[in-house]
Design a binder for these strands. Structure first.
Length: 347
DNA sequence: CAGCCGTGGCT
DNA sequence: TAGCCAAGGCT
């Protein structure tokens, strides 16, 4: 029996069949699922997927929405450029494709946020196309099965993996085969402690036969990171907290967060400058020189280790948000946690 | 091309 | 426990 047939047969018995995005096979539902699942585990995606599709049931509904609302529904899921791309792509589908999701893999792959692998997955699951995917699961399964050495992040190794993935494609049942590949990687051929005894292709697996299953795929070469520490300023006024809108791209792009400074900077001086610079936006607040009688500045004790201090926006927006509402605003998860830790500052 | 982007689970 | 990685794509 061929590699593909063994996997398809196994998938029918032991694979996943009841995931939310497997219930609907329309291209929009498949597309949103594939974007959310990029670098994100299934269990994390499920509640976000259900909320998102309830609010935006179609590309047209998504295209009409404000980006802020899309980001708010995405908040906590991470990789926020996915949400910005999704929103842009929805408008592209409406304007360029007349609201009809493109069918050709090349056209799907031109949508923002959709690369080669995601385009193939959409085409396979929504349109029954014959195309190969190559995600983390598939890379691991193929690297082990066929003994492909080397870090998959390098172009040479990735080319070999793509060629291998293409050559294994069955003539029919590509959707079942693709799902099988991902299920095998997620449930059996796991990164640590693979369950080789439950694998339908263990008999032909190079890594299994050479005892190198846990050594493949070759891990990323580690390079020491110049870690710095930054800290957040939490500016409070009664039961309100000051948030700034981050630049539209980059880290937490378009989301609201606390002002963030390097640990070497003087927080008090920085806060004075920031409040002075945004005096217009802060009306009807008191003049900044009263800041320490009318406002409370807290330097949150939680320090964050980051690669670099994120660049600040030239013209950040500022917003005083009641603490209760802030917890529901479009803010990234670390900010929500700090917010919960700060609580109400009292009178 | 290599670094960046987020959060959570795992060992 | 601190690092590694996950249904990758963009620059």
């Amino acid at each position: 029996m061929s590699f593909a047939d063994r996997l398809i047969d196994w998938q029918r018995r032991a694979g996943r069949h009841d995931l939310p995005w497997q219930r609907r096979r329309d291209p929009y539902g498949v597309w949103v699922a594939e974007i959310m699942l990029q670098q994100t585990q299934v269990a994390t995606v499920i509640p976000y997927y259900q909320r998102f599709l309830e609010r935006f049931p179609s590309a047209a509904a998504l295209a009409e929405a404000d980006l802020d609302e899309v980001l708010q529904l995405w908040s906590g899921l991470g990789y926020y450029s996915r949400a910005r791309h999704l929103h842009r792509a929805a408008r592209e589908i409406v304007e360029r494709w007349g609201g009809v999701f493109p069918k050709r893999v090349e056209d799907i792959a031109r949508l923002p946020g959709v690369g080669r692998s995601t385009a193939a997955a959409i085409a396979v699951f929504a349109f029954g196309a014959r195309a190969a995917i190559l995600d983390g699961n598939v890379k691991r399964v193929l690297a082990r099965c066929f003994g492909i050495e080397g870090y998959p992040g390098t172009p040479a190794v990735e080319r070999r993996l793509w060629r291998q993935a293409e050559s294994l494609l069955p003539e029919r049942d590509v959707a079942a085969y693709t799902q099988a590949l991902m299920d095998l990687g997620a449930l059996v051929c796991t990164r640590a402690r693979p369950r080789c005894e439950a694998c339908p292709v263990a008999g032909d697996c190079v890594a299994r036969l050479t005892g190198r299953a846990e050594q493949l795929p070759t891990p990323r070469p580690r390079r020491p990171l110049p870690l710095r520490q930054v800290q957040w300023l939490v500016v409070l006024r009664h039961d309100e907290v000051l948030l700034e809108k981050r630049p539209p791209a980059g880290l937490w792009g378009g989301l609201w967060s606390f002002p963030e400074i390097a640990v070497e900077e003087d927080a008090t001086a920085w806060c004075e400058r920031a409040l002075q610079a945004s005096a217009q936006a802060l009306t009807p607040l008191e003049p900044f020189d009263h800041v320490f009688t009318h406002f409370a500045l807290r330097i949150h004790p939680q320090l964050v280790r980051v690669r670099r201090v994120p660049a600040r926006a030239a013209q950040p927006g500022w917003l005083w948000i009641p603490i209760d509402e802030a917890a529901r605003a479009a803010v990234p998860t670390p900010v929500r946690k700090v917010l919960a830790a700060v609580g109400s500052p009292g009178p």
